[in-house]
Design a binder for these strands. Structure first.
Lengths: 227, 227
DNA sequence: TCTGACTTGTCAACACGTTGTAAAGAGCGC
DNA sequence: GCGCTCTTTACAACGTGTTGACAAGTCAGA
């Protein structure tokens, strides 16, 4: 029964998170501002901390920095608002282990929490990596290796691949990719998705012209076939 | 891709639900009060409605009652506040199909939605796979297997088969197929439907000349006989 | 049973929408 | 401005869906 500490000032969000984790069998502690959160973090032995950046009294970045300066190495996931890319960098610099952009889906957060727990409780820190074929991706480090050699990937490519992997086996329509990977509204009348798929294929496929991992399903979308 | 209509006044809850369902591949429409929800419900063909009980303008119970009195039989899941057991009884009396008590976990809601869809739409919707005879179709993966071996199917064939399965047992006229599967309003007075039925038969029937699953009803249309 | 009118099955060529890809354009941070 | 990534445009290549013609099948009435 892993223990999770949720530091979040918005009541609705806090209860939603509480119930979600409780449902998944976690032991949950709530703190409704930075100060209370810091106190709770010191007192309990949390397995993971969910930390909102924007909060009264003491913001998430400060809490994170403080915890790390006190020697705590508890896994921390930051919740940042959309478009605050600075937060991501700052958060990771402050010692957070991962971050999720609001608004997010609970499934996504849960996936990251579990990945984090798998990584930290596994004793040795072998990275949060996913492998298929001769490719290994580490989303946290933003690294991709094919046949052991590092390949440069952009943020967008990584996010696209991440979504594919999260939904491996099923056909994903372009629309949905635009919605989920490109973060809603905007441009549904372009070849942007295809473009990025092509780029990804060049990096992960043995023969991009005859793809094995990301196959196109005519008139329906793309399908990622893991391993 | 099932469509879900979320009628919820609390913005935080609404976005959380929106993102969760979108991530899972649902098409989502939000309405922020009872009136707007009712209007949206009338205009869109939602596969399921998530309906908060406590709302301004028109509460969930009224929306539900109204929808039912208008002849709608869309599956409805009510969100009730903790301890309002009365709501449960009332809600079900008003014609709701299920209810979830706030605060709830997203996983739980999703599980109920999928159960409801499986139940109401005959199981072919978002469910894993549908089997008949020695054929197994997985619409999510866009895969069809006969006797365990994968058979290539096109988007149109899949959609046609999906419609047949959803309406198994009943005779479906060609015009309706053109309307529902082809989404044509105009009627191309052609052999197109027959053509595709023939193609499907070749892939799923043991003896396409003497079909067992998709039988033709002379002068009326086709009939799919499930399992 | 035979016949004629109508409906359904089948075929292959064609038309059209969909996808792959390169290259130019736009946007952004350094 | 420069270098980077992402987006758009344009066009070629590909594959599916559609079509019309014709064969085969069905049914009702003679």
């Amino acid at each position: 029964m892993p223990k999770v500490l949720i530091i979040e000032d918005d009541a609705a969000m806090a209860t939603a998170l509480h119930d979600g984790f409780a449902y998944e069998g976690y032991e949950v502690v709530l703190a409704k501002d930075g100060e209370a959160g810091l106190k709770a973090a010191r007192e309990m032995a949390a397995d993971v901390v969910i930390l909102d950046v924007m909060m009264p009294k003491m913001n998430g970045l400060d809490v994170c920095k403080r915890l790390r300066s006190e020697g705590s190495n508890v896994p921390i996931i930051m919740l940042t608002a959309r478009g605050q890319e600075i937060d991501k960098v700052l958060g990771l610099k402050m010692g957070a282990d991962d971050y999720v952009t609001k608004p997010f889906s609970f499934m996504e957060l849960m996936a990251r929490v579990e990945a984090l727990l798998r990584r930290t409780s596994g004793g040795a820190r072998h990275a949060e990596a996913y492998g298929f074929g001769d490719v290994v991706v580490d989303f946290k480090k933003a690294e991709l290796k094919k046949r052991g050699v590092a390949v440069e990937v952009t943020a967008r490519e990584l996010k696209l691949l991440e979504y594919f992997i999260a939904h491996r086996g099923e056909v994903v329509p372009r629309e949905r990719l635009l919605d989920q990977v490109w973060e809603y509204d905007s441009t549904p009348l372009t070849r942007t998705v295809d473009m990025h798929v092509a780029k990804l294929r060049k990096k992960i496929e043995d023969d991009p012209a005859d793809p094995r991992f990301i196959v196109t399903v005519h008139r329906m979308g793309y399908k990622f076939t893991g391993s």
